Simulated scan of single mutants.
Amino acid sequence: MNLASKYFINGLIVIVPIAITAFVIVYIFSFTERLLGQYLPIHFPGLSLIVVLLVIVLIGWLSSHWLLKKLLGYGERLVCSIPVVKFIYNSVKQLSTAVFESQKLLQNAVLVPYPHPGVKALGFVMPELSAPLAEKFAEEHVCVFIPMSLNLTSGFNIILPRRDIIPLDVTSESALQYVITAGAIMPRGNDSDN
Results as ranks from 00 to 15, higher is better:
residue 115 P to W: 00
residue 124 F to Y: 04
residue 160 L to D: 02
residue 38 Q to F: 15
residue 125 V to H: 00
residue 162 R to H: 00
residue 31 F to P: 02
residue 126 M to E: 05
residue 166 I to R: 13
residue 145 F to R: 04
residue 106 L to Y: 06
residue 31 F to K: 04
residue 179 V to G: 13
residue 67 L to A: 04
residue 145 F to G: 02
residue 109 A to G: 10
residue 128 E to V: 08
residue 80 C to Y: 12
residue 81 S to D: 03
residue 155 G to W: 09
residue 194 N to Q: 11
residue 114 Y to C: 06
residue 46 G to M: 02
residue 175 A to S: 01
residue 99 V to H: 14
residue 34 R to F: 07
residue 52 V to Q: 00
residue 28 I to Y: 08
residue 14 V to K: 06
residue 11 G to M: 09
residue 95 L to E: 07
residue 90 N to E: 11
residue 72 L to W: 08
residue 44 F to W: 14
residue 175 A to K: 06
residue 194 N to V: 15
residue 94 Q to M: 12
residue 190 N to K: 15
residue 80 C to Q: 15
residue 20 I to E: 01
residue 125 V to D: 01
residue 131 A to R: 08
residue 133 L to Q: 14
residue 119 V to G: 07
residue 95 L to M: 10
residue 44 F to G: 10
residue 177 Q to R: 09
residue 191 D to Q: 12
residue 154 S to F: 01
residue 184 A to E: 15
residue 29 F to N: 05
residue 149 S to M: 14
residue 11 G to N: 12
residue 62 L to D: 00
residue 187 P to Q: 05
residue 1 M to P: 13
residue 119 V to N: 11
residue 138 A to E: 11
residue 101 E to I: 06
residue 175 A to M: 04
residue 65 H to M: 11
residue 166 I to D: 12
residue 14 V to Q: 06
residue 46 G to D: 01
residue 102 S to G: 14
residue 134 A to R: 14
residue 37 G to Y: 05
residue 70 K to P: 02
residue 17 P to I: 10
residue 45 P to L: 03
residue 126 M to V: 03
residue 12 L to I: 08
residue 50 I to L: 15
residue 189 G to C: 01
residue 165 I to G: 02
residue 21 T to A: 13
residue 175 A to G: 08
residue 97 T to V: 10
residue 64 S to M: 09
residue 95 L to F: 11
residue 75 G to Y: 07
residue 140 E to I: 08
residue 90 N to Q: 14
residue 169 D to Y: 08
residue 108 N to Q: 15
residue 186 M to V: 05
